[in-house]
C-alpha cells in the first residue's frame, strides 16, 4: 500500500468532528446510575471491557469498510452484532450524522451511494470506514479511530456525570493505550481475513450487560446522553 497521510485521521478522530458523538456516553450513563462506575478504577475496568467487546467489533467493521468490503453487507453484519434495538437505533443516528460530516469533508461516490442506500443512516463504524477510505486512510487507521472512540466517549461522559477529575480521566485513556493498539491491530487483521473469508471473519465480541443496560437507559424519561 502506498504511504498514506495521517493528518486526515486527526480530523476524523477529533472529538470536535461534527458527527454527534458527544451526545453519547457509550453506556457510561447507565453504568454510573447502577453504581458500576463510581471512581477511576471502575471507570477503567468498564472502558477496558467495552474496548475489547463493542470496541473491537466496531473497529473490525470500520476496518473492513476501509478495506473496501461492501458496506451494505457490513451494515447487515453490524445489525447481527447489535442485539439491542436501542443501540442499533443509536448507531444509525450517529451514522447518518457522520455521513453528512464526511460527505462535506471528503466528497466521494462511495459515501454518496451509501447515503442513498441507507437514507436513515448506516451503522456509524461502517460509515467511518467508508469515510476513512475516501480520506485516503488505511483500514488500521479506521480501526484506531473507532477503538479510541469506544473509550474516549465514556471517559468524557463520566467526567461530566461524576465530576471526575479530568486529569485522572485522561490517565485512564493513557493507560488503555496498549489495549487500543492491540484492538486496532486485531480488527485490521480480521478485516484482511474478511476480504477472503467474508464478514463472519470479523469480530463479534459483545458485552451482555451493556446491551441489557442500553435497553433500560433508552426508556429513561430524562437523561443527559442519548446512549
Amino acid at each position: 500500500m502506498a504511504a498514506s497521510s495521517l493528518a486526515p485521521l486527526l480530523v476524523l478522530a477529533d472529538g470536535r468532528f461534527p458527527a454527534g458523538g458527544h451526545a453519547h456516553s457509550g453506556g457510561a450513563e447507565a453504568a454510573v446510575a447502577a453504581g458500576r462506575i463510581r471512581d477511576v478504577p471502575s471507570l477503567e475496568a468498564f472502558c477496558r471491557g467495552r474496548l475489547h467487546t463493542a470496541g473491537l467489533t466496531s473497529a473490525g467493521l470500520a476496518a473492513a469498510a476501509a478495506a473496501g468490503l461492501d458496506p451494505l453487507l457490513l451494515d447487515e453484519a453490524a445489525d447481527a452484532r447489535t442485539p439491542s434495538a436501542a443501540l442499533r437505533a443509536a448507531a444509525r443516528r450517529l451514522g447518518r450524522q457522520m455521513t453528512r460530516a464526511a460527505r462535506a469533508a471528503w466528497p466521494s461516490a462511495a459515501l454518496d451511494s451509501l447515503a442513498a442506500a441507507r437514507p436513515r443512516g448506516a451503522h456509524q463504524p461502517v460509515v467511518l470506514g467508508v469515510a476513512a477510505r475516501a480520506a485516503g486512510l488505511r483500514p488500521t487507521d479506521a480501526a484506531y479511530a473507532v477503538a479510541y472512540e469506544s473509550v474516549s466517549g465514556p471517559v468524557t461522559a463520566v467526567v461530566r456525570l461524576l465530576g471526575l477529575d479530568p486529569f485522572e480521566a485522561t490517565g485512564v485513556l493513557a493507560r488503555l493505550a496498549p489495549d487500543v493498539d492491540a484492538v486496532a491491530l486485531a480488527a485490521a487483521d480480521a478485516a484482511v481475513r474478511a476480504l477472503v473469508e467474508g464478514v463472519e471473519a470479523l469480530p463479534a465480541a459483545s458485552g451482555p450487560l451493556s446491551d441489557v443496560m442500553a435497553e433500560g437507559h433508552a426508556g429513561w424519561p430524562v437523561r443527559l446522553f442519548a446512549s
Partner: peptide, 27 residues
C-alpha cells in the same frame, strides 16, 4: 443465508475487562 445474530462472549484470564461494568459487572 443472511446473518441474523452473531455474538461472541469471552471471559476469564486473557479476556481483558470481562468482569467490569460493560461486560458482566461482577455477575
Amino acid at each position: 443465508g443472511r446473518p441474523l445474530y452473531d455474538q461472541e462472549l469471552s471471559y476469564g484470564p486473557g479476556a481483558p475487562g470481562w468482569d467490569g461494568g460493560a461486560v458482566l459487572g461482577g455477575h
